[in-house]
């Protein structure tokens, strides 16, 4: 089974961690570069080209980081849910690596969505926080991220931790449609959808274009960070496997070998 099967899908081909490490090493410099260029261009558009909003004035500039952060907060969780599905149903070797790597990234962008939203809310609504459906559901999403990380770190057996975390992630995915449609289902202080909605975006192109450029930059940055985090996790698992194998080798060698022949792998650590 050493030869690559001709009709493998891309996820099957990437199931090999060694192949993933090689591919990601090639892709990462391009992704970092693309993210830097897009975000730099987005910031230029945001600060030097986008006009102040007729109602919100210059505070509309907070939208250029708030909205991409909010999208990535939800996108990150969707990625975890898809990865969890891949782990539980297909037992994809990289699925759990992907889910674990995405959690701290998603949690960070969710925190950023909450912080920047709060800083936008104060001058616009007169308050940093209100318990309306959109804000509360995003806060629950943040707690879900924390819960996933806490659950995983509380279980020592990694296979069990992966499965339980995946189940929680799939149960928690119900929060995503609640966040998305909260502004339609309930009366909220938060404004309704103005970019992704039926009938097209309700934002003038002079503000929409910088927003989309920043969103593209943030998304590429997220992809690059996720890939880097996956590489780190694969290396961590390899280190753990090598350390365990070395300990096992040393414990097998110890009872039978005389002290003078104990040169299995240099010094015992």
């Amino acid at each position: 089974m050493s030869a690559q099967q001709p009709n493998q899908t891309i996820t099957q081909r990437l199931a090999n961690p060694t192949r993933f490490m090689a591919l990601s090493a090639t892709l990462l410099p391009w992704l970092w570069g693309a993210a830097a260029i897009l975000i730099a261009y987005g910031l230029f558009l945001a600060f030097f080209r986008a006009p102040p909003d007729y109602q919100q004035g210059e505070t509309v500039k907070i939208m250029f980081i708030h909205v991409p952060s909010a999208w990535l907060a939800m996108g990150g969780y969707l990625l975890i849910a898809i990865s969890s599905f891949g782990l539980l149903v297909f037992r994809h070797p990289l699925a759990d690596v992907s889910a674990k790597a995405a959690a701290p990234l998603g949690a960070t962008f969710t925190a950023l969505a909450l912080i920047t939203g709060s800083l936008w809310g104060k001058p616009m609504w007169g308050t940093y926080w209100v318990w309306d459906a959109r804000l509360t559901s995003v806060l629950i999403l943040f707690f879900l991220y924390l819960g996933l990380m806490a659950l995983r770190s509380s279980i020592e057996e990694e296979t069990l931790a992966a499965k339980l975390t995946a189940i929680l992630a799939l149960v928690g995915v119900t929060i995503l449609p609640i966040i998305k449609f909260s502004v339609d289902w309930w009366n909220t202080l938060h404004q309704p959808a103005s970019v992704v909605r039926l009938g097209g975006a309700a934002i003038h192109p002079s503000i929409l274009v910088p927003l989309l450029v920043m969103a593209a930059g943030f998304t590429v940055l997220f992809v690059a960070m996720h890939m880097k985090a996956m590489r780190n996790e694969i290396m961590r698992r390899r280190i753990k496997a090598m350390t365990m194998a070395e300990i096992e080798r040393q414990s097998m060698a110890a009872p039978v070998s005389a002290p003078a022949s104990a040169s299995v792998s240099g010094k015992a650590t």
Partner: peptide, 19 residues
């Protein structure tokens, strides 16, 4: 950046710091 410049700058600084 108008009267609410501090809110804008803190938002961008918080994002830069977190990232």
């Amino acid at each position: 950046l108008g009267p609410h410049a501090a809110f804008i700058w803190i938002s961008y600084l918080a994002t830069a710091l977190a990232v």
